[in-house]
Design a protein around this nucleic acid. Structure first.
Length: 263
DNA sequence: AAGGAAAACAACCGCCGTCAG
DNA sequence: GCTGACGGCGGTTGTTTTCCT
């Protein structure tokens, strides 16, 4: 995998191109630790690397940075990618922020290979079917869990309001989802909200919900721009409070994700 | 077992926004 | 206010690996 026959030359400016050697990696790592991230041209110069600052940054971010996960994405991570892509479109770096240890490049590659229709529509359909199945199972489990919780809380002293209870549940679910390797909490939370609560009203109203799983065959993506704009509009109108927890719209938690203003 | 297709991975390119001089 | 350097990001390409027929 490391031969990359076509590369390894130098640019007009004299920068080295192509695959990185272990020596270069070592030098880069040492000098990033020394100078810190963000000053890539300085790092490249001080390390004596015949690489552009851009190239150094890319190598560090996608390969050398500590804490990077290697290997296949989990079903949970896949679900998160699908959902966040539905919201934000090809904002890979933004999506990557919600997947610790994963890089935008990795996510981008993943999306292209799995969900670009022109390449593998059948496999895409299979995958979607699988994920939907997982989702349904998760909803079932979630429903059972809620039933259990309701039974417990009805026996408990009734000091906590419904809203407070839901708020608490929303914060508890990420860990639960992690344990079960289940469907992403972002989906399950909203989907599991009772229909007569402060929920989905906003989502339905905005037409967000149905769109999440509607793949655009042409672009291999969900109609994200529309949904994203609607979402942003909702936040601006302070509806996100309703959308999320009936709480503070500037920093609302939706299961595993903390959404902040300005997306 | 061989060949082709698909998937995975790594890196480059070009555009754009930011910021210091 | 202008400009150039720099960094970040999304798109794309090239190569290897894995899977399927």
């Amino acid at each position: 995998m490391m031969r990359m026959m076509g590369w390894g030359a130098t640019t007009e400016q004299g920068w080295r191109k192509g695959p990185w050697t272990p020596e270069e990696d070592k030098l880069l790592t040492e000098h990033v630790n020394l100078l810190g991230e963000g000053r890539w041209s300085s790092v490249a110069r001080s390390a004596g690397l015949n690489r552009s600052g851009k190239s150094c940054r890319l190598r560090w971010v996608n390969y050398l940075r500590p804490g990077l996960k290697r290997g296949q994405l989990t079903p949970q991570e896949e679900g998160i990618i699908i959902e966040l892509h539905a919201l934000w479109g090809n904002k890979w770096s933004t999506i990557a922020r919600y997947l610790p240890g994963r890089t935008d490049n990795e996510i981008k590659n993943y999306w292209r290979t799995h969900f670009k229709k022109e390449k593998s529509s059948q496999k895409q359909e299979k995958r979607k079917a699988l994920l939907l199945k997982q989702k349904q199972q998760q909803q079932k489990q979630q429903q059972q869990h809620e039933d259990n919780m309701n039974r417990v809380s009805s026996n408990d002293e009734k000091t906590m309001s419904t809203a407070e209870h839901e708020k608490q549940m929303a914060f508890m679910q990420p860990a639960m989802a992690m344990e079960n390797q289940s469907w992403p909490t972002m989906y399950q939370d909203i989907a599991s909200w009772p229909s007569d609560h402060h929920q989905p009203a906003v989502i339905d109203e905005l037409g967000l919900w149905g769109g999440l799983w509607t793949f655009d065959d042409t672009n291999g993506r969900v109609d994200a721009s529309t949904n994203c704009n609607k979402m942003a509009a909702a936040v601006q109108q302070n509806q996100a409070a309703t959308f999320a927890l009936g709480g503070d719209s500037s920093n609302f938690c939706n299961g595993g994700y903390i959404f902040q203003e300005g997306f």
